[in-house]
Amino acid sequence: MLEVKGVNSAYGRAHILYDLSLSAKRGEVVVLLGRNGAGKSTTLKTLIGLVRPLAGEISFDGRRIERLEPYQIARLGLGYVPEERRIFTDLSVMENLEVGRQAPRAGAPQWTPAKLFRLFPNLAGMRERPGARMSGGEQQMLTIARTLMGNPSAILLDEPSEGLAPVIVEQMAKTILELKQEGLCVLLSEQNLHFANLVADRAYIIEKGHIRYQGTMAELAADGQVRATYLSV
């Protein structure tokens, strides 16, 4: 579904990603682990086109996307949920969903506001509420719902558990597993290993822009050495 080969990215003069390669399959939840500044967010931003890679190939659904604009990549069915949520605070819940809306896509689950309100019951009661008057947890639900309105076949989640109460994080984990059930490919970045353990099938560990480790969650759990070296736990 998503295949990254030898990608290098930079912000201005700061080189962030070095020969990064990874892949994710349909119906799979893959987690990118690493500390702040390791390059997790940059990886996701490069995939969605917000950062243009200096070199390397990115294929999505069999198409090369590394030279496309973000809106073109999004229209191919790759959804992006940013760090810090970035919902439109002036717009109501329904209007936020409208911005994300795209035409249905073959081979991807279809979403309507009604279906999303079943997935996020909290949002159903606040359709006309402006984003500015929602709590952090509600905003996190909305930002995911908004991306799903584009009927993506894969989504990128940047630190979905950051700054959320443990109860909300547990709900978030449940939601991600439901999306997996729907057949979505999910690539998320995380620092919270507890959370990653709840949702992910496979993990990549990134440090200073290099992939240092890849394996299933079970393999990672068994490898105390790797966890101690790269994740500082």
């Binding site: 558990s161 109460a165 443990p166 109860v167 994080v169 547990e170 919270n192 507890h194 959370f195 709840l198």
Partner: peptide, 12 residues
């Protein structure tokens, strides 16, 4: 636990 901590799966 009910309003905040949850089941405890998220901390050591």
């Amino acid at each position: 636990q009910q309003v905040y901590l949850g089941s405890g799966s998220l901390f050591g």
